[in-house]
Simulated scan of single mutants.
Amino acid sequence: MKKSNKLYAYLMSSPAMLVLTVLSIFPLLFVIYYSFTDYYYLSSGKPAFIALENYTDLFADQYFRQALWNTVKFTVLAVFFEVLVGLGMAVLINSVKHHQKLLRTVTLLPDLLPPVTVALMWQIMFSNNYGLFNNILGLFGLDPVNWLQDVGTAFYCILVIDIWQYAPFVFLLLYAALQSVPQDQYEAAAIDGANAWQRFTRITLPSISKNIIMVVLLRVIDTFRLFDKVNILTKGGPANSTATITQYIYQYVVKRNQIGYGSAATVIMTVIVLILACGYIRENFRKNSAQKG
């Protein structure tokens, strides 16, 4: 009976799996193949095989190295602060005895907004002439700041926006994890004289440590593909200070039609994301194995 049920499940899901496999494998092979060619979209000739020339040109390009460094730097800072802020909100709201539903709803609102809407909303607040932040500076007699066009502030403005939008996502997952922590552990620790910090470090963190790891892996994979906010707010500027790998690929594939060169950059990005995804898959596999055991 179990074998027949498994066979039936495989037969029913095979058409969808076949379509997903074809749609995934074909574009991947397409990109890998053209990454070794000088394929130019508007050229009528056949693409020539140039081996690793695209890859060597990429790492020789200072713009690409800057985009790669910006992406890594942004990912590390964004994930760190998103997890820190999300965990703080989860612990705080979980400790509140009244109006938890209202607080949860209000906290999750930024994550429910489309990234484009978020970028445009913050663009208005960062405006030089009528933006909220420059108006606040004006109240204290300070000069306005060109937030999104200054090398010293543009990167961190986008960082703040990303933290504001996705810290609620971290909050949601960690808040759900906190619901499974037995309350009698806190009560026993309180009876033994443990203060709030000791209960947090010795009960809360160990209990949700696996969930924190999973959240970190998910956010790293997603943050590494940052594009929409950068493209709307700064276009990678000023002086490439906010350029990311995805923005770099957009410049060379969509705007300049250099498919071969852009494909090489895409392969590099895909490899990095796959390495990060392997950590998530391995951790998820261990978790499922432990539950079955």
Rank of each mutant, 00 (worst) to 15 (best):
M12C: 15
G138Q: 01
A290F: 14
Y33P: 01
V96I: 15
A176T: 06
A51Y: 07
P115M: 14
L217N: 09
V181D: 04
K229F: 09
S4R: 15
L42S: 07
R225E: 14
V215M: 09
W147H: 08
F80W: 08
T246W: 02
P114E: 08
P27D: 09
A176W: 03
L52D: 03
C157W: 04
A78M: 02
R286G: 07
V116L: 11
K2C: 06
D61W: 03
T234A: 10
T270E: 03
A189T: 03
E82H: 04
Y39M: 15
Y175E: 01
G86I: 03
D184G: 02
K210M: 10
A177M: 06
Q179E: 12
V22E: 01
N54D: 08
R199V: 00
N288T: 01
K255F: 05
W197A: 14
S44Q: 06
K210P: 05
A16C: 04
C157P: 05
F59R: 07
P182F: 11
P238D: 13
I268G: 03
R65G: 06
V76D: 07
T107H: 08
L233K: 11
A277G: 02
F224Y: 15
Y33W: 08
C157R: 13
F169K: 04
I124T: 10
P47A: 00
V96E: 08
A67D: 02
I232A: 13
V22P: 00
T204D: 07
I221P: 12
P168S: 03
K292Q: 10
P168C: 00
K229M: 14
R225G: 12
L23D: 04
L108C: 04
A67M: 00
F80I: 02
K3Y: 02
G260S: 13
V271P: 02
E283N: 07
T107R: 04
K235M: 10
L11D: 02
V254M: 15
F285D: 13
V118G: 01
Y166E: 05
T75G: 12
G237V: 09
G141N: 09
D57H: 12
L18P: 00
E283T: 06
L87C: 06
A78H: 02
N129K: 13
A177W: 03
I203M: 12
M269N: 10
A119M: 04
A16E: 03
G152F: 09
L77Q: 08
T234S: 07
Q185G: 00
Y10K: 06
P27A: 09
G131A: 04
I203N: 12
R219K: 13
P27Y: 10
V31E: 01
R286I: 01
G86N: 05
Q247V: 01
A277D: 00
F133V: 04
P144V: 07
